[in-house]
Amino acid sequence: MDLENQKRVKDFAEKYGPENLVVILGAAEGEAAGLAAETVTAGDPTFAGPLAGVQLGLTVYHICEDEMKAEVDAGVYDEQISMMEMVMDVDDIANEMSSIRNDYCKYL
């Protein structure tokens, strides 16, 4: 994850409390989604950014996961996202995400 984005995530977790923060991803692939999710839960796996070694354990979802779709307005989702469900491997993304959440998320 971009270093500036890591810094922002860290700052917001401090400011609002990690239990009040939800990170929502739009990554194109399962692997990239998993890495970003790992970064905001277990710490930056590349040890490059401000979240290296920082285990925030934040709640994190990919926007295409069922849990997100259940909460957002269906019309807006259809307009903004739905076409990409035909493009991305949503199942792979959802598997990666839930596995990271199960391992590292502290506020489920």
Binding site: A27, A28, E29, E31, A32, L35, M83, M84, M86, V87, M88
Partner: peptide, 13 residues
């Protein structure tokens, strides 16, 4: 690098 196949994603879109 986890960024997928960009042209292929464009074609699918």
């Amino acid at each position: 690098a986890g960024a997928g196949d960009v042209p292929e994603a464009n074609y699918k879109m």
